[in-house]
């Protein structure tokens, strides 16, 4: 039994401590947000926040996470009641297949929590560990900009950096 704090709730999970967090989130806790993309820390599809910092859940065994605050995309809102960053992704229609998007939202979330008005270059640099194959990048950046508190970003500048 491992105890995890996920999206504010303490959960008991019957998993071996060396199981990567990703598998526990998906299978034991039935959360869909974090995705398997590579299992190697190369793509960011599995990104979650741990104590507010971005983390690759595919490479983090649950046994190391005692007492730490884990946030997944489900912790930011729901399909019916999306959080502000999620809403920004919806407003910008920032997805094609969307497989990368939950990871993108989480990585962006950790940026905005630390730096509410990042420059475009800061956004690009911060997002660099996450891959999107469909080419939804411009919209993802637009969504992050929209959710930021940058003044000039209040209106959509989709397609432009």
């Amino acid at each position: 039994m491992v105890e995890l704090k996920v999206n504010g709730a303490v959960r008991q999970v019957d998993a071996a401590p060396e199981t990567p967090l990703l598998y526990v989130l998906r299978e034991d806790l039935q959360l869909n947000g974090a995705k398997f993309g590579c299992g190697l820390g190369q793509c960011g599809a599995c990104t979650v926040a741990i104590d507010g910092a971005p983390a690759f859940s595919c490479l983090l065994p649950v046994g190391l996470l005692a007492g730490r605050e884990i946030t997944t995309v489900e912790g930011l809102g729901s399909p019916d009641k999306p959080g502000p960053l999620q809403q920004a992704f919806i407003d910008e229609q920032a997805a094609q297949c969307g497989y990368c998007i939950a990871g993108m939202v989480m990585r962006a979330h950790t940026l905005l929590a630390r730096n509410p008005s990042p420059t475009d270059d800061e956004i690009l640099e911060h997002m660099s560990p996450n891959l999107c194959r469909c080419g939804a990048h411009m919209r993802i950046v637009a969504a992050i900009r929209r959710a930021s508190s940058r003044k000039e970003a209040s209106r959509s500048q989709r397609g432009a950096l």
Partner: peptide, 20 residues
């Protein structure tokens, strides 16, 4: 971590600054 410049065939190692 380690990363390779854009388009480079080469190592990618994730950093664990926030997660560990």
């Amino acid at each position: 971590g380690i990363r390779t410049p854009a388009g480079g065939f080469g190592p990618i190692m994730p950093g664990f600054a926030g997660s560990l």
